[in-house]
């Protein structure tokens, strides 16, 4: 479980997050909305552990451990992984090498790359000259090798063409153990391929009194879904593929609104972030 309590974060002299609270239960995936510059990337970078995001108050707990001041590599080893909006290019470092390095137990890089349509890029320097969409696929490939338990996705579908978007969507589902059998939440099923979502069912997880019971993944009897996802999106395309459990609106440094992802997205389109944050809160 990821638990964020009263988180305050500064970047340089600027207060970016102010008293932010967030809880994601095992097996859940949340979608994070918010206007440009509202601090979505900052929140993910803070969870990942980037030192320039100074935590000035509050606490982050993951898998029962207080990780607020844990180093970035310790967090990665604890199971946190991120797909970046703008990752750095590293001259001379082959993509194959970094994918190998992501996996602690060794991984069949060629097989993974084939799945992601990325074989031709393995011998190129990581991110050097990659197009926007290629960066996304490379980032997901690294996350797959890492097999993170908490996967943070910063705009995974922006800049991705219409054909690759289903690949991205399916990959995220696979990463979050949402790819087998029936989905517990059926929002995506009700979307026309090219149109906006229509009616949507609520998909709050069935919780025990303590709220800790993870989803059962249908189609894989006995298998319990534990992976946690947090996905930033502006376009909402990802909602057509990933059946998320909750939508969040980041506004003014706090989670100002919560609700069903497709519903929230619809509201944002209709009345804008500001109004949506107010009405959904």
């Amino acid at each position: 479980m990821l638990l964020i309590e009263d988180l305050q974060v500064k970047l340089g002299n600027k207060k970016i997050l102010k008293h932010l609270d967030l809880e994601i239960l095992p097996g859940e995936t949340h979608i994070l909305f918010g206007p440009n510059g509202s601090g979505k990337t900052s929140l993910l970078m803070t969870i990942m552990g980037y030192p320039q995001y100074k935590v000035t108050g509050g606490k982050i707990t993951f898998k029962g451990e207080d990780i607020t001041h844990m180093t970035i590599d310790d967090r990665a080893r604890l199971g946190i992984g991120m797909s970046y909006q703008r990752p750095p290019s590293i001259q001379g470092l082959k993509t194959r090498r970094i994918i190998e390095a992501c996996s602690r137990d060794g991984v069949d890089v060629d097989a993974l790359a084939k799945q992601m349509n990325f074989t031709d890029f393995l011998d190129r320097d990581i991110n050097v000259g990659f197009s926007g969409g290629e960066i996304k696929r490379s980032e997901l490939l690294q996350l797959m090798a890492q097999d993170a338990d908490l996967a943070l996705f910063d705009e995974p579908e922006s800049g991705v063409d219409l054909e690759n978007i289903s690949l991205i969507g399916n990959t995220i589902n696979a990463l979050l153990q949402r790819d087998s059998g029936e989905q517990p939440c059926s929002a995506a099923r009700q979307c026309e391929p090219a149109g906006p979502c229509k009616a949507v069912k609520s998909c709050e997880p069935t919780k025990s009194s303590k709220g800790e019971t993870p989803f059962k993944t249908a189609g894989q009897p006995g298998m319990t879904r534990t992976k946690i996802g947090l996905i930033i999106t502006h376009t909402g395309f990802i909602l057509d593929y990933v059946t998320a459990d909750k939508g969040l609106v980041l506004y003014n440094g706090v989670i100002a609104g919560k609700g069903h992802p497709a519903e929230i997205f619809k509201q944002i389109r209709k009345v804008g972030y500001k109004e949506c944050a107010r009405c959904a809160a």
Partner: peptide, 17 residues
């Protein structure tokens, strides 16, 4: 930091770069 976020220690990340 990018490489550390993939699980490499600071020394491993430096050596890799």
């Amino acid at each position: 930091l990018y490489l550390m976020s993939r699980g490499l220690t600071e020394e491993e990340a430096t050596a890799t770069i």
